[in-house]
Amino acid sequence: MPSQNDARAGWRPRHGTYWLIILPALAMLVFLYLVPLADVLVTSITDPKPGLDNYLLLFTSTSVQKTLLTTLRIAALTTFIALLLGYVVAYAMRAANSSQQRLMLFCVLLPFWISVLVRSFAWIALLSSRGPVNAGLMAWGLIDEPLPLVRNETGVLIGMVHVMLPYAVLTLYANMRGIDVRLVAAARSLGASRFQAFRMVFLPLTRPGLIGAGTLVFILSLGFYVTPALLGGGKVLMIAEYVAVQINDTLRWGLGTMLATTLMLSVLFALWALSRIIDVKRLFGA
């Protein structure tokens, strides 16, 4: 803090002062984030005994492998569906006028304000065998028996796509906004059909957006915990829940921290690979 003398002497901020201002936040970050994180790393190679035994389980334990495969499969499916749906929405947003755009943006962002826990319970209520979705379909005579839409992998996918969709839409929309639409018009004037103009001009131009949105959604999907735990009916075990089981129930902290570390390293690696292809800073709005 500047003293009274500084103020009278026409005090001007010097470079070091800025550091003082962020010091409390920095100290909090170190104590609350980096120190525990280091603890996780250390635990993964010391518990129950020093060595890389925990990491060996990645190659030897079918239980660990099955969980990793489930996680990868669900994350990949979520990414694919979210990109497909998000692309359509982003495309429509780009084509809409500005007041429509505002409304659409508002609708896309709306779910962000509701906690994932509440959304999961809402999906259970909507999709369960006696929920309005199944009741409606049965009332229309489209189905005779309620569809198993929740408490299984389908339910997990629906819940996760719902959470991930805004990320896909916003990233794709940011990318599409930067595309010069006159290029599409030019293609049309040179005799391309609507579909050809889209496929040969617009779609290739959205490639960075697709890669960026895909990576973002995939990375975030890998760490899902609440949604699969609630919507999966106890039968869809993803890595985050597996870690929680090891830490809380089976007390194999070494295994839990190893998986947490592996997850973190995979994410960092994916981000690094992404940074080779596109400007990550711009992707995250920096």
């Binding site: 239980s63 039968k235 869809v236 075990l237 089981v245």
Partner: peptide, 14 residues
């Protein structure tokens, strides 16, 4: 208990 819990979870997980 610990081993049984893990085996049950493994058997139930898809």
């Amino acid at each position: 208990a610990t081993a049984a819990r893990q085996q049950l979870i493994d058997a139930l997980s898809s």
